[in-house]
Design a protein around this nucleic acid. Structure first.
Lengths: 252, 252
DNA sequence: ACACTACACGCAGAAACGTGCAAGAACAGG
DNA sequence: CCTGTTCTTGCACGTTTCTGCGTGTAGTGT
């Protein structure tokens, strides 16, 4: 049994049974109680469960199954998403890009947050179905299979009819000179169109993207309000970006 | 064993077992653990799996999850979907409504079918991502949480810009006098807008809907080419519909 | 107050990891 | 056919991570 698998098992168990008894799980899986306790401690540290004497309980019954889904996104993206979610004010309008990191943001939004989310990603729209107070507006268009978002002329046109307070953008490359880049021209244009419709644009960039550049430019740094990343705040690239006037939000 | 072949093997294993243990695979294939780890690292970099200590896990259990949900689709809906899928000609354009039955149709389409699918359901758009040759066009608009589809003025307007050979419509009520009905006025209008853009409209109706009516009329029988159902062909309601000129396709 | 259980912490062995390196295969060009 | 290059593969090495055990402490129930 893989360690990560065990972790998932615990969360699934928590969602299904509503509680975890360390002793029982240890006996059940044939591992030491220490390992179970260690896992529970880690999960609790990430806010995914509440540690109690003898085992663990869900932090809140409502988000139990959500937590199980969240664990599969890599740690870095999850941390970036958590910070990004704090930028979304109740009652505000948010433009949310596609991609796995943005999907993590959708999941990280408080379940009962009342806000408007505008997105061109069917995946993200579907993910927000269980946020009852979030109003979701979907931008239509031809679906680009590679990144699972609506792109093309129709999607860009649809974007012209919306406005928002905040735009959260995912990219594949973050480079001091090249700016924000992505691997597809259509996608780059779409991201540009989205960013243009929001007062502030923040970029979601897990650490592996820092310092890399892809083929197509999305935005120059002048048009970016801030960058949210889990990279080391002392990273040389990040320091250069600060010099460009980009606010750096680190998700340590 | 070719490197690419090994890669495929790993992905297949991941899909089948839900996890990969580097050590086991290495022993199984008679190659070094290093090679397996290298492959997993590459796959993870491409976002095809999630690397964990000891092996790898699927990026998102949502895939397995979704597959599992498909199988729990009630038999009736699955049979209806299978028949509906046969109506879709290669190269044709299909307007696909939202709802669980329509989702089953998306799943029932041959994986390599080349066609255009127009839908206002983010869920269905997402489900069609694994049909590489299907061109998906998403109709945007405000998302109605209840049925998880785009509705409202924007969605209806978007629908005006498309045309298709076939429209597959889900409804909640099929009644000889009341016609096709559904429980929400906005949704009814949207369905009407969709049906108007296709040469032929077929209705998906699992047996429990036959003979019932909901509050809002979608279409009169004159505008319906046919009905696909798993109800008994001798059902009195179906015979009345035949009299209305509606073609009945039964999914025995 | 007492016994008992659960707990955190530190430790050491084991397992998994990343990296550099060299041998070998596949390949392109002369 | 030969040669230089590139890519892949397995091995060795040092490093990191995981896991079970022992110890002392804290919490729980009688």
């Amino acid at each position: 049994m893989l360690a990560a698998e065990r972790r998932d098992h615990l969360l699934a168990l928590l969602a299904r049974e509503g509680k975890i008894v360390a002793k029982d799980v240890a006996a059940d899986l044939g591992i030491s109680e220490d390992s179970v306790r260690r896992d529970l401690r880690d999960l609790a540290a990430e806010g995914l469960c509440q540690r109690v004497y003898g085992g663990a309980l869900p932090v809140s019954p409502a988000i139990a199954d959500y937590a199980a889904r969240q664990t599969v996104t890599p740690d870095g993206k999850r941390r970036v998403a958590a910070v990004a979610a704090t930028l979304v004010q109740p009652g505000s309008a948010l433009i949310l890009d596609g991609g796995t990191t943005a999907l993590a943001v959708a999941g990280a939004l408080p379940p009962d947050l009342a806000c408007t989310v505008i997105t061109h990603s069917p995946t993200i729209a579907a993910a927000l179905l269980d946020h009852p107070r979030a109003e979701v507006f979907l931008l239509g268009g031809r679906i680009f299979k590679h990144s699972a978002v609506a792109c093309g002329a129709a999607a860009v046109e649809a974007a012209q009819n919306v406005s928002a307070d905040l735009c959260l953008l995912g990219v594949t490359g973050v480079h001091p000179q090249a700016g924000l880049t992505t691997g597809d021209a259509e996608e780059a244009a779409m991201k540009r169109a989205l960013a243009a419709r929001a007062a502030d644009t923040y970029v979601l960039a897990s650490s592996e993207k820092i310092g890399t550049a892809s083929r197509f430019r999305v935005l120059p740094w002048e048009d970016v309000s801030g960058l949210i990343t889990d990279a080391d705040p002392g990273h040389p690239v990040l320091e250069q970006l600060t010099a460009h006037g980009v606010e750096i939000l680190t998700a340590g």
